[in-house]
Nucleic acid binder design. Sequence first.
DNA 1: CGGATAATATGATGATCATCATATAACGCT
DNA 2: AGCGTTATATGATGATCATCATATTATCCG
Lengths: 205, 205
Amino acid sequence: MRYSDSHKDETHKRLLAIAGRALRAKGPDGVAVADVMKEAGLTHGGFYAHFKNKDAMLAEALSGVFDHARVKFLAATDGMPPRAALAAYIDFYVSPRHRDNPSSGCPVTALNSDLPRQSKALRSAFDAGVKAMVLGLARRIGDAGIEGDADALAASVLSAMAGAVAISRAVSDKVLSDQMLATARESIKARLGVDDAGLSRSARQ
Amino acid sequence: MRYSDSHKDETHKRLLAIAGRALRAKGPDGVAVADVMKEAGLTHGGFYAHFKNKDAMLAEALSGVFDHARVKFLAATDGMPPRAALAAYIDFYVSPRHRDNPSSGCPVTALNSDLPRQSKALRSAFDAGVKAMVLGLARRIGDAGIEGDADALAASVLSAMAGAVAISRAVSDKVLSDQMLATARESIKARLGVDDAGLSRSARQ
DNA sequence: CGGATAATATGATGATCATCATATAACGCT
DNA sequence: AGCGTTATATGATGATCATCATATTATCCG
């Protein structure tokens, strides 16, 4: 082996990180292979030594983004009681900060309307990511002792959160956009009983 | 005037209808000028006699789609009492049928994650459409005597509805997708007090 | 029915892009 | 240092596409 074991691996990971950001910022069709390579300090030709094709890169990058988000989520809510963790997650997700930073945000928000038009490979990666998110949310909802079908509730909460952020991004009017986020955030928390009223009520019990 | 007054106008309208459908089915970047012309039985060259450029066509088509949706909405709920109208609208919007027919569905659902990456012209048309939808919803909410800030509630309800349908489209798993829709639908209606329980309660009063 | 003109067609042009064939250069072992 | 190998670069190729210049056709008035 002429190059160090890790050399190509590191480039590969760098490409995935760049692609993951570009994917969320510009959408699947907006990502240009040559641009990704250039951002990594390389030229376009070497691309196919790293990926079968553009599609494979995007799918791999998307999986990575979901994995990374899961890790961040767990770290951020580590040690919190389940209701507080849910509330914190919702506050974090349905926020102006998330809205204003698509390239480091949730891919469900960034890509939802693009996805139906994408390749099978990318859709599969997306499916897996959404399922993992729903599963994680459902577990928290169960842990929190919230009544109702935790899976169904989780799926619906995810769609409400992602929808609110996605549409707040799509709208240019800042007042409307902020209002959408704030109202959605409170309504989702209220629905799960993890709004301020709900949290203090459960703390009293 | 060699051609009848209406000739070009009719072609123009036909192009807009085709573009409106293509826009929702394929996204703004997926619409090809030549394809729109071909579908209208024309060739690509004549396009610029009808529109300044592709962008102008899309923006005009999007406005038309929103206008058309408003008319359909009013017709469909005409004469209904406000709560029943709201319930019917939510049932209609957050439905498998809407999910499965993007090209004739709501553009907020079909385009939300594409929009931040689009031209100013298209974003303006989208903004105007969203505002009109929020306004209409808020009026119904007010008419129904639902407590709370009607504007904020309307914005949040729209984002929940559009988000649910958009993400149910993005997900390939039919069970998850159906579940998402059903739970979102019921939760949104419950929130407005126009679910079955809420409707019979208000009827009794 | 012929001719002016409006509507549409033909055919380029240049840009962007994914992909691939082939060339070069960096690396570390001997 | 030199060599083989691996990673990357150069430079096509062909596809798709928006846009425009120019040609052609269809229409309807006289």
